[in-house]
């Protein structure tokens, strides 16, 4: 017996959990580097007290390392905040280019674990009324199904059409040799993906020639 498909709410909760877990993992890594560098500073001060001179260049390197990690944490906080606010309104005027950039950030960890690059091709601003959180959820699922196809060293490209109706965007895989992954059947979208696409009034198609997904907004004027 097939398990019952999860509800969209369950899928949204699971997506939120996955994204925040990835962010918290990176925060922990960042904090660990900051902690060890401040620990090293304490080590060096203790050695200085015993007569070993402090090297200013060494201190400058430590300050630079800590500063770099603070910037990283600051960037992550801003990204996580933007993601959290994507659920504020059930429909908002949204720039698709900014959405694609956020999708790259949210999928960075699973992509990195498989050594797959992510790239958002940003065009002039293309505004559309949609539920930003739901669109991120759908893009995340689309990317996830392409990671193994792109393979180690490959990349996934997210790009919007030229803006003429109907509005569409593509999520396509490229191998390490910059080729369309060959010889594979179309991936099957999960019931949650098709349900989500329907709720967002998006037609979700597999574009074999492009090697990826095509998301087309139904009856939407820009």
């Amino acid at each position: 017996m097939n398990p019952a498909p999860r509800s969209l709410t369950m899928d949204a909760l699971q997506f939120s959990g996955t994204v925040t877990a990835a962010f918290s993992h990176d925060f922990k890594n960042t904090l660990a580097i900051i902690k060890e560098n401040t620990g090293l500073l304490v080590d060096l001060l203790a050695m200085a007290e015993k007569g070993r001179p402090l090297d200013p260049q060494r201190l400058a390197t430590l300050a630079e390392r800590i500063g770099r990690q603070v910037q990283r944490a600051d960037r992550m906080t801003a990204e996580l905040n933007r993601f959290a606010h994507s659920a504020d309104l059930p429909e908002a005027q949204t720039d698709l280019g900014a959405m694609l950039e956020m999708a790259v950030v949210l999928s960075a960890r699973p992509a990195n674990l498989k050594r797959v690059g992510l790239e958002a091709v940003t065009a002039p601003p293309l505004w559309i009324a949609t539920f930003p959180f739901g669109l991120q959820q759908l893009l995340y699922r689309c990317i996830a199904l392409l990671l193994d196809r792109a393979g180690s060293g490959g990349r996934i490209v997210l790009e919007a059409d030229d803006g003429r109706p109907p509005v569409a965007l593509r999520v396509i895989a490229r191998t390490a040799e910059d080729r369309i992954p060959a010889g594979e059947t179309a991936p099957t979208p999960t019931p949650e993906m098709t349900g989500l696409a329907h709720a967002l009034q998006i037609r979700l198609d597999w574009d074999a020639a492009a090697g990826g997904w095509r998301l087309t907004w139904r009856d939407v004027e820009t």
């Binding site: 890594n29 660990a32 580097i33 060890e36 560098n37 620990g39 090293l40 080590d43 050695m47 390392r65 770099r68 990690q69």
Partner: peptide
């Protein structure tokens, strides 16, 4: 895989 982490841990452990 965090090379900044590797570097600082190696240095702190070496001091010990």
């Amino acid at each position: 895989d965090e090379t900044d982490f590797l570097e600082v841990m190696a240095e702190r452990m070496t001091h010990r």
